[in-house]
Design a protein around this nucleic acid. Sequence first.
RNA 1: GGGCUUUUAGCUCAGGUGGUUAGAGCGCAGUCCUGAUAAGACUGAGGUCCCUGGUUCGAGUCCAGGAAGGCCCA
Length: 1104
Amino acid sequence: MSVTSSVFKPVVAADRVDYPKLEGSIQNWWDEQNVRQQYLRRNEHSEKKFSFLDGPITANNPMGVHHAWGRTYKDLYQRFKTMQGYRQRYQNGFDCQGLWVEVNVEKDLKLETKGDIEKYGIAAFVEKCKERVFTFAKRQTEQSIRLGYWMDWGNDYYTLSDENNYTIWSFLKKCQERGLLYKGRDVMPWCPRCATGLSNMEIEGEGYKELTHLSLYVRFPLVDRPDEYLLAWTTTPWTLAANVAAAVNPELTYAKVEQDGEYYYLAEQLLSVLKALKGHDKGDYKVVETLKGADMVGWKYNGPFDELPAEKDVKHSVVPWKEANASEGTGIVHIAPGCGREDFGLSKELGLDVVAPVDEFGIYKEGFDWLTGKHTSEVGKLVAENLTQKGLLYRPQNYKHRYPTCWRCKTELIFRLVDEWFISMETLRYEIMDVVRQIQWIPAFGFDREMDWLRNMDDWMISKKRYWGLALPIFDCQQCGNFEVIGNREELQERAVAGWETFDGHTPHRPYVDEIKIKCQQCGSEVSRIKDVGNPWLDAGIVPFSTLHYRTNHEHWQEWFSADFVTESFPGQFRNWFYSMLVMSTVLEKTAPFKTLFGYATLMAEDGSPMHKSTGNMVVFDDAAERVGSDTMRWLYANHVPEQNLNFPAIPSDKDMQKSAETGMPVRLSEKWMLTRRTLDKIWNVYWFFVTYANIDQFDPTRHQLPVARRSELDRWIISELQQTIQDVTTGLEQYDTTKPAEAIQSFLEDLSNWYLRRSRERIWKSQLDEDKIGAYLTLYECLTTMITLLAPFLPFLSEELYQNLVRSIDEQAPMSVHLCDWPTVRAEFIDEQLTRETHLVMRIVGLGRAAREKAQIRVRQPLNALYVHVPTGTEEEALRRLSDQVLEELNIKQLELMSADSDMLAYTVRPQVKVLGPKYGPLVQKILAHLKGLSAHEAQEAATQLHTTGTLSFTVADKEVSLSQDEVQILATARPGFVTAEERGYIAALETTITPELREEGMVRDLIHFIQDMRKKAGFNIEDHIGLALYTDINLAQVLQPYQQEIMAETLALNLLLSISQRDFPSFEEVYRERISPESPKKLEGYTIEIVLGKNVRDGSQL
RNA sequence: GGGCUUUUAGCUCAGGUGGUUAGAGCGCAGUCCUGAUAAGACUGAGGUCCCUGGUUCGAGUCCAGGAAGGCCCA
């Protein structure tokens, strides 16, 4: 028989599926059919809505696999909500402005400094920045589509848009109105290459590098104390030229030591430094006296660079500072308020002089004599030499420490006194905290992280002295010191007294916006915009407003604000996107910009190390998609606990890909990837099984119906499990958890393929299409189609492939894509808990039976006569009596006997129920436990009998009469030694191992059938092909096989069977395959020899 | 120095409200089953639940202190 026409498209075996290729063809089909567009419109008239707000992806490079992680969540939840009928916006966002884009454009144009940029022309430079952003936005869109990310592509928001920028202006205006905005003079971390300050959001984490610097121990000669010196230590020699004070901790004990006739002061605890630095040129030292830091305060000393004009008027003295400590250095801290954060703070507190030595490029200004014109990074040694000449250097020493670098260009930062613009957090932080409390944080510790950040957050520095970014709408009057903030384009036009014509027609970016001049409202002078651009987190933080047209369409904004859901990688975002959104939303509306925040951790390389381009362990997204497949990648993400870092397994190498191309086989994945891929393969296997057999039977599910109530117990069980799975997946996703749903699906798949399908084989294998077989097909079909609907948000490609073949190919009325289907609902009436319990009981007993066979070393193909089973409860006994067939069939055993409580195969132990006994008996519990544990096997048996007959177990312990009820102590049956048994918590299976001659023959026949099946496959027959069969053997085996001929033929689809003891008998078919089984061959049939011949084109259908 | 987080089998991780026999997957060793075959089942080896102290009849679980790693902030 051959299949003339298929109901379903025939399916290749799971090991031949090329998933990435399959994904490509499905993508093409989606594109041709405009499926995504239909998906986007599906719920446009729905009452329910789900407001997702996309955190903008930086459009500066191709996206990586770490973006794919986040985008998998974004896509998955939006798809889920779509299937549930929620109206959505599906808007993707691109982050466009900021230094990171500038840095790349500079590289492309080979520009080194800000001077180069200005020579190149700001207008042209800004244009290049825009170009770069659009280029990568396009690229990222293509990549996202490859991931199966369905957004309203083309309707994206860009943070460079006028709307975005002007909405930030209105925010800043509001800040000014509330008095939150100010110009601050402070020492900031500063990148001398980028010539801009960095906000403290920018220098943490990756910014720090382990670096070695020249550190100096310097002698500060004390005034009026001849030959006495303060010993100070610094890791930044260039700052010595700006020294104004030396700080000591007033609480700390300092020592005055004598060495080579000179006296030094330093912290007592750090005297070891002197030893460590001794060297040949220094003599021994001895402590002359000790004193408190407080005693030294006020002492005058001569600064190390008093000869410089800039230091001329500075009076150096010892000042008190709580932060000075004895953890390193000398306990005496060199203070240069123009070059250090804390130093500057101290100077404000104590009214110290401030010397700011370098310009924006880190070059010494006028007034520093020989240092003027030199760069901070080149003067370390020169300073050391100069100090040596002046006799002020005690010792130089190389010092390794963590030092901040520019997070974009890796240049070492310096600290520099600058004018920058800030938003004050003094009172705002508490308002934001109130807003943070309104938000659901997943994981919950996100709340604590954000609160911690808010508690510690300094004022937000929003200005940056660069070119490409938000033009800060601040007009700072140089005449009278008044500053004004412009809130929108119209206001700008109104206030402009010059430059509007030049600006008009351009986006609000540099340089055109710089042309505008306004009139100072206070003094009437003409005022220019400050040249600074904005911190890029302003750009991202405003999107809950700008993307919803807060300024221009308030109603629309109200409809979608606040977002139901946002998700990003949390390390970092607490101080970046989450933070900036919170600040802006608190200022503008005093309310939370999103209701639920879902954060996930960091993606690492396979070995747990950070993924970096430079270390070569970077996985390129496109490679991952093409070598492993998007669905597999998505499944990896969905299965991962989000709050833990994810180690991304290595993908197949170029070599692997080449090999795959040569052999034509799908590329082999690593063991780690297979952990993930196996689920897809299992789904495919079940799918293959269904399609293959349904085609053989010409089974079209639309043409058959059978109420669930009329189906078999097995069918009803798996349908019940399916309902439970729908329930678990739905609940999990509603709580923004993918791991439990993924687990639920996997566990259902195990039940379906390992138990349901195994148990259904016989039903489907039999020839006639009766009600039982129809029930099996329908059940399997329903399980498959429901499961792929549940999987659609997780595995959009695979689920579509299966849907098209399983559903659309036979039902034109069905939605054209699985992604246009409704989310499955639970049919509570199909949940049968008793049946679930009973099926699990059967599985458990079968497991024990297999274990017993293992112990007896009797393979399952060898039939056995009896299995003796004990279960703990009467209900289970009753169930097992009903379900014994399933157990026996699985285990290949003839009969199942229940062992009663008094069976001589059983022994007993007593098991106290501590949870009940504990509260009742208190301290006595441990004694009772000891007593019961000490019972001999015989005593335990008696105790069991006593409890069975009287209902209580009484004994004396610690002079107290104890009487335990059946609730308090459980009797557990165990197997008595001497039988081949397996047991588990009161469940016991014992095997009758006698193999009678009849059983032995049956076993041999089963072996033989198995061998023939194997040969069919080797000979290349299809599953449904009929064959001719000839068996040549000796008289003994022939006699054994004689009665089983019908069975052999039926099982192997043989049309005829020649069983002969003479090779001279020829079969009436064309021989295809021949194999000899003998004691010498790898396959064995006890001691017999038999030659098996398989053939086709059977001439005579009648048997011998 | 402060906040958050982690520490359980060789590896990756589960282990509501405390209950005496701490689990899973992978890996390893062995066996079985198989016309789902890169699959599946079973068995086995493998544990000081990071350490110390406390609360309790009873602590992987609660409390305190400490150690180590990660993230964040000073």
